[in-house]
Amino acid sequence: MLELRLVQGSLLKKVLESVKDLVNDANFDCSATGFSLQAMDSSHVALVALLLRSEGFEHYRCDRNLSMGMNLNNMAKMLKCAGNDDIVTIKADDGGDTVTFMFESPTQDKIADFEMKLMDIDSEHLGIPEAEFQAIVRMPSAEFARICKDLSSIGDTVVISVTKEGVKFSTRGDIGTANIVCRQNTTVDKPEDATVIEMQEPVSLTFALRYMNSFTKATPLSNQVTISLSSELPVVVEYKVAEMGYIRFYLAPKLEE
């Protein structure tokens, strides 16, 4: 038996909106630690890892580890029916073939339940090693989204370079080139407006902008995004999910042949 009650139901709505276009079907894993998901896009270029820790739920009951295969588009359709202020409860029986999403309005005057069919998904779970990154950039998530959107109107790939000057996002296309440099800036009124660059050594990697743009659909989840880079490793683009966890997108680089 599984019963997870999330007062801030809008978080789950936002999570689904940020992954549904990247991944079609995925297994949600439920354990004492929390509600999690790891899945790759169909071409295995990007991987998403979500964790919502059990402590972040108002009520968290998970009698035994459960893996629930869901079509993320269908799940997003159901969660769209929840109001932004609604409390969302996820319920499932061990061995059952459905999951129920219950939506309660804050004043308890409207209660809805949506039952969705589960599916069997063969998914491979990948071990993600703890990495030492050459550079970690923390910046406003809206700024990062703007940069990815702007650059994708010029080119298909972005070169992200971190030096002591700052972080540079560059692209080139048929019509020309573009370079955007963001410098460290910690003298801001609000901490969420800061740009912080921790560099162990300079690093420069190339990525497909199409995927970066897809990751920025998680922007409503967090004011800040963290971009972690190491030579010839997938970049990690992380958005915190309130105080309860994170959504991390891994993107494999384009490498010189």
């Binding site: 790759m40 071409s43 295995h44 270029v45 990007a46 991987l47 491979e124 779970h125 990948l126 071990g127 993600i128 090693p129 790939t157 190339t206 497909a208 490793l233 997938p234 891994y250 494999a252 680089p253 384009k254 490498l255 010189e256 042949e257």
Partner: peptide, 14 residues
């Protein structure tokens, strides 16, 4: 030219 790598070439199955 550059070639798109895949996640599975960096992370292995567990």
């Amino acid at each position: 030219g550059s070639k798109q790598s895949t996640i599975t070439s960096f992370f292995s199955k567990v």
